[in-house]
């Protein structure tokens, strides 16, 4: 018998147990809590059936958080991969490309909370960005006001995450042998065409993984919202800026009675969004593997 067949259970069990006991089982417990009204251990748990879900569907604030999360995943994803693809067109040959790749990745190693502190100075009504706009005779904008704050957060997110996906995709592109591009140049392909017909197809598998990775990460977005709005104060972030994770955090921490049932119901609803988005992503990115022979 092969080694790995003999070792099958001993090798698998630790991961399986940790995952089942500490991840899957709590998820099921979370589903159970979502059907009750409960303030946590030490308080009474009362059965509510689907009432938490019904209440959430009626709750405009949750609806905003829900939509925001969705928009963030899709619009943010489109921007991030758009920029990533554009970078891939030029980054193969550009002078200083190693340097660019490193610096673009930099926000990833910086805590988002730290970035948030700078945001106030940059995006405040009297902040740096508006000052620069005024030099050019443009109107200052209320960047962090209710109408624009969400877009600014998406912008911040794109700024801080794109470097990661550039790094991922470029390392896949690096593996493509140079002679392929040389041949393409000989037949007169432009840089865009080289990207479109060589780089992209050959890195498509990595893109598929990256896209799923983005979807999973985007649904957890939490700290950047705090960083751009009310981090450090007792106030809750303004409603137009909230994601589901933020809304849930507000409900869990609650200055009054924590409503864990409602918070758990939000979690279950996020699960649905995630599942839908992952299936969509898989469908969009599915295609036959292209290989160089």
């Amino acid at each position: 018998m092969k080694t790995y067949e003999r070792a099958f259970w001993p090798f698998l069990l630790p991961a399986l147990l940790v995952y089942t006991l500490l991840f899957v089982a709590p998820s099921l417990f979370g589903f159970w809590v979502s059907l009750t009204r409960w303030s946590g251990p030490g308080s009474e748990m009362t059965w509510r059936g689907l009432d938490n879900y019904v209440a959430l569907l009626h709750n405009e604030v949750f609806a905003t958080a829900f939509t925001n999360t969705f928009v963030m995943a899709i619009a943010g994803g489109a921007l991030i991969f758009g920029f990533t693809f554009l970078s891939m067109v030029v980054l193969r040959q550009l002078k200083g490309r190693a340097f660019i790749r490193s610096v673009v990745f930099l926000p990833l190693v910086i805590s988002i909370i730290a970035i948030g502190a700078a945001v106030g100075f940059l995006l405040n009504p009297e902040g740096a960005l508006n000052t620069v706009l005024e030099w050019f005779g443009l109107d200052p904008q209320p960047w962090l006001g209710p109408e624009m704050v969400f877009r600014c957060i998406v912008g911040g997110l794109v700024w801080s995450s794109t470097g990661f996906y550039v790094a991922l995709m470029m390392s896949a592109a690096d593996a493509i042998p140079a002679h392929v591009y040389e041949d393409a140049q000989l037949i007169g392909a432009t840089k865009w065409e080289q990207f479109r017909h060589i780089t992209l197809p050959l890195t498509w598998d990595v893109f598929a993984v990256s896209a799923v990775l983005w979807v999973v990460n985007s649904l957890k977005i939490f700290d950047i919202v705090l960083a751009f709005t009310t981090a450090g104060t007792a106030a809750a972030p303004p409603i137009p800026a909230r994601t589901i994770a933020v809304q849930q955090y507000i409900v869990v921490k609650g200055s009054g009675l924590p409503e864990l049932g409602s918070a758990a119901a939000m979690g279950v609803m996020t699960l649905l969004v995630t599942a839908v988005l992952i299936v969509l992503t898989r469908r969009i990115t599915r295609r036959d593997r292209v290989e160089l022979s």
């Binding site: 995952y19 991840f23 899957v24 709590p26 998820s27 417990f29 979370g30 589903f31 809590v33 946590g40 251990p41 799923v212 999973v216 649904l219 957890k220 589901i244 994770a245 849930q248 955090y249 869990v252 864990l260 918070a263 758990a264 939000m266 979690g267 279950v268 996020t270 699960l271 995630t274 599942a275 992952i278």
Partner: peptide, 15 residues
């Protein structure tokens, strides 16, 4: 497990 977001198990974790 990849598709189970942190939110789903946030409440159980606190408990």
């Amino acid at each position: 497990g990849l598709s189970i977001p942190l939110q789903t198990i946030l409440v159980p974790i606190v408990v």
